Amino acid sequence: MPSHDSADSDHSTSGAYVHAGQEFDRDMNYIPDRIVREGTDAEGRPAWPVEAGRYRLIVARACPWANRAIIVRRLLGLEDAISIGYCGPTHDKRSWTFDLDPGGVDPVLGIERIQEAYLKRYPDYPRGITVPAMVEVSSGQVVTNDFPWITHDFAAEWTEHHREGAPDLWPADVRDEMETVMKRIFTEVNNGVYRCGFAGSQETYEAAYDRLWTAMDWLEERLATRRFLMGDSITEADVRLFTTLARFDAVYHGHFKCNRQKLTEMPVLWAYARDLFQTPGFGETIDFDQIKKHYYIVQTDINPTKIVPKGPDPEAWLTPHGRESLGGRPFGDGTPPDPEV
């Protein structure tokens, strides 16, 4: 069972809000449906069947939670089995929209905003309209937006459709420890930056800031002697950490006031992040322009002017990282994904 990222705080369509005097609290209630090989999920509840071509993964390159799904789909080679639709980097309070597509309409689902897929299944859907989301193509209905399970099930349930040489992102010999590592990464880092950015008081901000940097120092130490979080090869734990690190200097350092240091000033984490960025399946999923537009334009509680910063220079991500000296094989017994056309 994956670390469910169950913690506090909200990543609804409108991003989040600053509530004066309050700590940021993430709503982790998602559509609990799963897509599995058998007829029920691990808890015995009815589930949707794995079937190539039946579902479309809806994402936004700007969103770190959706970025996980983009990377895992690439690493496992699920492109032919699960189509993908990209929302634009900005949205209103209603929903992410398909403004990157001709006419602003997803070419497969025929809709302008992902909200339509949610309302088709739940006409009175009360929660945030989030990405990533899996949508059944034939009915146009959302299946699930439970993002920790989406990537877990890509690895565990879609194995029949994995490419030859797909890496094992959930290796059995480290799975228990990996669950613990991923839980800390989510609560203290992935969600920790949001807890800083949307703190409603000086006291809650400083407490969130201290928690974040305690975890960042722990990661700097952990990764000093091992190439990846769980050892010699990439696992889902690395995917989950990478999407936050990729956004750190461009967004979280300034916009979310996580400013003790830049990522580029942490020698181990910066080298580790570049190592992943330069690994097939990771860097090509990152669009810094879309990332910056999302945070600086949508989150007007924090940035009311909607001015988007020009920097930092993304070319820094392509500089040598030197992590090869730690050995290891990024894909374990597997192989890199084919280059994107």
Rank of each mutant, 00 (worst) to 15 (best):
W65A: 07
W158E: 00
S83Q: 14
Y194A: 03
A133I: 01
Y118M: 05
R74L: 04
A246F: 00
E203S: 14
W158S: 02
D153V: 09
D25T: 09
Q22W: 10
N190W: 00
F24T: 01
D168T: 11
R226S: 13
L78N: 05
I234D: 10
G200R: 11
A246I: 07
T187R: 12
I31K: 04
G77H: 01
V174E: 06
A207M: 09
R211A: 08
H19G: 01
R260G: 01
G332E: 11
R121V: 12
M230S: 09
T300N: 09
G15L: 11
L276K: 09
E38M: 13
A66Q: 07
V72T: 10
I291Y: 07
I297S: 00
A7F: 06
R175A: 14
D176T: 14
R184Y: 08
E157R: 11
D146T: 08
Y122T: 06
Y17D: 13
G15P: 06
E203I: 13
P337A: 12
R175F: 15
V105M: 02
I70W: 06
D313R: 10
N259C: 10
E220C: 07
L169D: 04
T130N: 04
W270Y: 15
E116M: 02
E188N: 15
I31E: 01
I185C: 01
F228S: 04
H255Y: 11
R175W: 15
E315G: 04
P2S: 08
T180K: 15
G254L: 03
W213N: 03
F282N: 00
A246E: 09
V308F: 07
L169M: 05
R222C: 00
G332K: 10
P148C: 13
P89E: 10
K183E: 13
N303F: 11
R227Y: 05
G281W: 11
R61K: 15
T264W: 13
F282H: 00
D41H: 02
S6I: 13
I185V: 09
A208G: 14
A250F: 02
P89A: 15
C258L: 07
T225W: 10
V105K: 00
C196V: 14
L212H: 05
H253K: 04
P337E: 10
